[in-house]
Design a binder for these strands. Structure first.
Lengths: 228, 228
DNA sequence: TGGCGCAATATTGTATACAATAATGCCGAC
DNA sequence: GTCGGCATTATTGTATACAATATTGCGCCA
């Protein structure tokens, strides 16, 4: 962190900062999040750090191991499937709803998002591209104007970042913006049916681009890889 | 609490204990949850209490007001609708899935739940009946074997308890067990289509039994009822 | 008498001290 | 030389002390 930090680091800020780092794949799954280390980095006490870690733990981005500390979560293959199963229940219908509520301003935001993602991809900033890709989905949820569902999708998108970090199979890089562009067209037409279908397909494509053969577990570290 | 408490009150235990109290309508929306008060009641320090309150806050069962303390949440009419909208996206499909995975043992559990709810209703234990009713839905989610979705439904059920506490309109008491019984039949037949439809109708009935005319806000306490 | 402001009080927010636990390294015994 | 146990160290878990803030009550003044 900066030595001169004018920002006030509340637990929410710290949690958001860490979550962003997860989104951008700067904090890979399994990373140890030492309390003292973070406290010093942000210039706050462990109390705030612990609150932030608890918040992330509730969002399943962080796993707590008793007396061992907090770690960036490593979703299992099982959990990876579940996250996308949940998204497939929520997001298509949400996209349909968004299509009927879409304003010109909303469309501009989504267009800008896609453009930004293109720029990031061209610049090789994959982390940023991934963040923007998630933000597209989140923006759709926001437009649907269902805060409760939006919160759920928000958490699922974050967890998806971890899943992608663990199970993304190389190749097929820019299919993302294609799918988002198709969705944008449906939104522009106010075509709810199309938006729902496109979102459903998009999510299926995402899962298909993952390597979820349970053999190649992450097994980053240690004893639990051996089951003891 | 008991003066002699052999139980170890971790923050999770405390949170679960409070959540149960919310379910059973022993803690009505708006109730102030003083940290010192809870700490003394459970015989622990404020540290644990705060962790528990944070957990409940993340589940939207508790609202934190800066420098004012924690209160049992009072979902707005808007939020009430959103909660049931979310449930209607998740639970019908989950019920379908549960129908195809249902075992004899699962059926027994659900039967027992309905029976227990009947007993509670006959005994006039409305809080317990409500708790059991929620558990029925949660059990269905468990049977569907999608832990991620189950967690979401669990939170939504808890929040529904608050909604019911605030907006339940008297009359129509025991329609609950009827709907659950119909679902049970569908489960017994392994009829996913019927289960999905029944769950959808059941949730619509639940919303219909609420008084969600935005005028009659709860406005339990004070200044924010007047917007300042 | 009513309103304003200050002081007292209570409660939450934060930091820190201490306890408990697990990991690590050392040393001795076989 | 290797294994087992003990001591050391590091890290998290919990309690508590202190600071910050909001509320409440009192008293002064118009």
């Amino acid at each position: 962190m900066n030595t001169i930090d004018t920002k006030l680091w509340t637990s929410e800020n710290v949690a958001a900062d860490l979550e962003r780092a997860v989104h951008e794949h700067r904090l890979p799954p399994g990373t140890k999040l030492g309390e003292d280390e973070l406290a010093e980095a942000y210039g706050i006490s462990r109390t705030i750090v612990r609150a932030a870690l608890q918040a992330l733990s509730h969002r399943r981005l962080v796993e707590h191991k008793r007396n061992r500390g907090a770690f960036i979560a490593q979703p299992s293959v099982r959990e990876a499937r579940e996250v996308f199963e949940a998204r497939s229940l929520l997001e298509p219908r949400t996209a349909r709803s968004a299509a009927t509520r879409m304003t010109e301003q909303d469309l501009d935001i989504l267009k800008q998002n896609i453009a930004d993602e293109h720029v990031a991809l061209d610049a090789g900033e994959n982390g940023r591209a991934l963040l923007l890709s998630g933000q597209f989905h989140l923006e759709v949820a926001r437009i649907a104007d269902q805060a409760t569902i939006e919160d759920m999708i928000s958490e699922l998108i974050s967890r998806s970042s971890l899943v992608i970090a663990l199970y993304w199979r190389r190749r097929a890089a820019l299919c993302e913006t294609q799918a988002h562009h198709a969705l944008l067209d449906a939104f522009a037409e106010g075509n709810g049916d199309a938006a729902e279908d496109l979102m459903k397909s998009h999510l299926l494509d995402l899962v298909a681009s993952l390597d979820l053969r349970s053999v190649s577990q992450p097994a980053t570290s240690l004893r639990e890889a051996l089951g003891r």
